[in-house]
Design a protein around this nucleic acid. Sequence first.
DNA 1: TTTTAAATTATAATTATTCTAAACAAATAA
DNA 2: TTATTTGTTTAGAATAATTATAATTTAAAA
Lengths: 148, 148
Amino acid sequence: MISKLKKLGLKATPQRLAILKLLDGNKLHPSAEDIYKRLKPDFPSLSLATVYNTLEALAKAGELQEVRITAGKRHFDPDPSPHAHFYCRICNSIYDWRINPADIGIASRVKDYLVENYVLNLYGVCPGCLKETEGGKTINDKTLFEKE
Amino acid sequence: MISKLKKLGLKATPQRLAILKLLDGNKLHPSAEDIYKRLKPDFPSLSLATVYNTLEALAKAGELQEVRITAGKRHFDPDPSPHAHFYCRICNSIYDWRINPADIGIASRVKDYLVENYVLNLYGVCPGCLKETEGGKTINDKTLFEKE
DNA sequence: TTTTAAATTATAATTATTCTAAACAAATAA
DNA sequence: TTATTTGTTTAGAATAATTATAATTTAAAA
Ligand SMILES: [Mn+2]
Ligand SMILES: [Mn+2]
Ligand SMILES: [Zn+2]
Ligand SMILES: [Zn+2]
């Protein structure tokens, strides 16, 4: 992990190592503040600005991706590979949603546009929250696409 | 247009009519401030808060959709039907990108998730800006998907 | 070690958006 | 028509996430 930072030309500071360790394999898509609050007890001197600085450096290096799926807040994903995200409006969780880019059918639609990147966000209710409501209030069980 | 507002239970104020008129058929996906600056000369009393209020009321009524495709700013689209958007990093324009939802292949992937909505944003260079650079600096002409 | 360039920190600034409460005006009732 | 009600507009303050600043600290090179 130290060598990973050095490879990127970044100094291996304790703060950065702690952030990297927290993110490693993390599927929760935490916000900068999530990370800050989680590390602050073990790192009383940690500044929120450092969290942002580190996240930006890692993002620029292609080591993580930013996820903009909610209104005002960015989330961070240690998996930089292209994949979609699902946001549950009940528990506010973000789930990975693996879609083969070819299946989205964007490549064939490039027309005269140069497509360099894409973001696919899905919104709805996750399996866990759907179970919670079974037997209770009924949730509309039509998907957006069934409507059409 | 007056009746449209009344149908939604909204009073037909001059401000709202001006905003509706500006948006009608508008393909530019303006921000709240774009709208404000555009109308301010003809409406010296207009407040930015009114623009936001009106946009929120119209969005809630399903008469328009919000487009979150850039970092810190929302854009507004008088076309509430589900469609994707393309953001050109050169001219900062937002283009409509019509994709048949069925072609995205999300419906078949619903697994145990209830999918109520989706957002598909594309990023790159638009045809006009591609032409500008022809003969000049070369832009990487591979799409995201050709890489894979 | 000593040096130095980079990183961290606390705090201020920024930016888009939302809130507030007083003034105003459209719709309705008298 | 006039009065009343209720929703709307307005200016400006407040908020929230993020970014900038400048002094201090520290990792790593010399
Ligand atoms: Mn992810
Ligand atoms: Mn559009
Ligand atoms: Zn959930
Ligand atoms: Zn362009």
